[in-house]
């Protein structure tokens, strides 16, 4: 498989995992990516695929009528943060989860082999 197709497969996995499993879904999908990719690049693929999957799910919310930008500002108002910071945290949290777990798992497996 090319790197591109690996990445796309990871994105599909993350979309499904986050859609049905929320915060745990991103972690489990990250673990699967790590187990599957003992090669270098697991962190980047885990991180990037989770981030892109989350962005796609957010776009889906928008497509179903959600006013993402306005709501981000409202949410940010509760934490004294700008709206873009809320979007950033939304995207980065599953990315760090998945990237960290994928990268860590892959390296552990490499270290043992």
């Amino acid at each position: 498989m090319t790197k591109r197709s690996i990445f796309l497969s990871a994105v599909v996995l993350q979309v499904a995992a986050q859609a049905f499993g929320g915060v745990w879904g991103a972690a489990i999908a990250g673990l699967l990516v790590g187990l599957a990719l003992r090669d270098r690049g697991a962190f980047r693929i885990g991180f990037g695929s989770a981030l892109l999957a989350c962005a796609l799910l957010l776009a889906f919310v928008g497509a179903r009528g959600g006013d993402v930008l306005t709501f981000a500002s409202m949410l940010g108002g509760n934490f004294k943060l700008p709206g873009y910071a809320i979007i950033l945290v939304t995207l980065l949290l599953p990315a760090v989860q998945a990237g960290g777990i994928a990268g860590g798992t892959a390296r552990l497996l490499r270290a043992q082999s």
Partner: peptide, 30 residues
Amino acid sequence: LSLAAGLGATWVGARGVGALPPLGALLSPS
């Protein structure tokens, strides 16, 4: 280090820390 970051983010996202609510559950688009 990588696992700590991933698992730590998962913990914070699922359970929250101190006054910080479980951000992952709250900010999950789904």
